Simulated assay, not measured.
Amino acid sequence: MTRVLHVITGLGHGGAEHQLLLLLRHLPAGPAPVACEVATLTEAGPVGGAIRRAGVPVHEIGMRGNRDAAAVPRLVRLIRRGGYDVVHTHLYRACVYGRVAARLAGTPRVIATEHSLGDGHIEGRDATRGVRALYRATERLGSATVAVSATVAARLRGWGVPPDRITVIPNGIDAAAFAFDPARRAAARLRYGIGRDERIAGAVGRLVPTKRFDLLVEAVAGLAGMRLLLVGDGPARVPLERLARDLGAADRVIFAGATDDVPGVLAAMDVFAAPSTQETFGLGVLEALAAGLPVLYTTCPALDDLPPGAAPDARRLPTDMDAWRAALASPPGRPGERSLVPPAVARYAIAEQAARLARLYRDGLDPDESYGGAARPPAAQEAVPT
């Protein structure tokens, strides 16, 4: 049995947090089982509760801020008591503190997954010289860095991470969880006050400027017969609400807040809109495709790293108001109709990605699968120059 401690900054609603929950549910048992525990530097939050209900222990380190160095000895003591074979870190703060603690505790293998490295920023903060220097210094303490897409792998190389320390293991998706259900659609529409035949454009994500939800608010404000369902929370919520009021569209934009029921809100939609200019993977787009929705998007490495035709119901648009308004004005199909799930979704099945991580825990980084090896994953080979 391989014993793994996952260290993450927090367990509130977020893509990396939900991806960890999904991974814990799908790591293999069988002849080479993986037993996991989780340490959160800050609060356990709603995702922490779900992890505990799944039977996985969650330890709260009680970190009070970004510079609370007292968290390191607490984490070291936890790691030493647990005698873990692997420490796997997620998100910037956890990667910095977790790698240091794991090495001080003598953990034989230290893995990090890079979920949130954008172009010029990481997890919403500017990628200053100091941020990059600290990242590189602590990255050297690990055994390998996992990029969730070929796009992220290229950015890691640009930051100076050696190619032979990087491997691409994409985020995973449980497509069956998002299968369209008319009853779920009806329940979600009732919950948000949406009429049975109203046409709904929807978006899911943290409400931050790089997601460009302002573009969707403006586009829908100029369209008759279309409402917008925005699912998520974040610092941009108040400015977005103000924008909707200023445009006279307050009744056309539904701010749903964060939710655990992403399949339900996707079922309520008729077209999924993702105008984000900064993405490391684009999991929301894949979830919408798994729900049978037509998708409009600007940036989605999960699709852009695949061959053409892998997602025929996904259309890429520039961040141009006229283009978005025109596309939303005439979405394909009738309200409630669904398309077949495209091949792109199957490429990211969670069981396969979990199995790859289990091999990495057990055997370490295979030179042939790293960016310094002779072979690369097909998507990475296309996307990253040598």
Rank of each mutant, 00 (worst) to 15 (best):
Q278T: 09
Q278C: 03
Q278Y: 03
Q278S: 13
Q278A: 13
E279N: 08
E279G: 08
F281K: 08
G284V: 08
V285M: 05
V285H: 07
V285Y: 05
V285A: 14
L286Y: 01
E287W: 01
E287A: 01
A288F: 04
A288M: 04
V295M: 09
V295E: 06
V295I: 07
L296N: 10
L296K: 11
Y297P: 15
T298R: 14
P301S: 10
P301Q: 11
A302T: 12
A302C: 09
A302V: 13
L303D: 10
D305P: 06
L306W: 02
P307W: 01
P308A: 09
P308L: 02
G309I: 02
A310E: 13
A311C: 02
A311S: 02
P312F: 03
D313F: 00
D313L: 01
D313Y: 00
A314Y: 02
A314C: 04
A314D: 02
R315V: 13
L317C: 08
L317M: 09
D322P: 00
W324H: 06
W324G: 08
W324C: 07
R325M: 04
A327T: 02
A327V: 01
A329L: 01
S330N: 14
S330C: 11
S330T: 15
S330Y: 00
P331K: 07
P332W: 04
P332R: 10
G333P: 12
G333I: 10
G333F: 08
R334V: 12
R334A: 15
P335A: 12
G336P: 12
G336N: 12
E337L: 05
R338A: 14
S339F: 15
V341Y: 05
V341E: 11
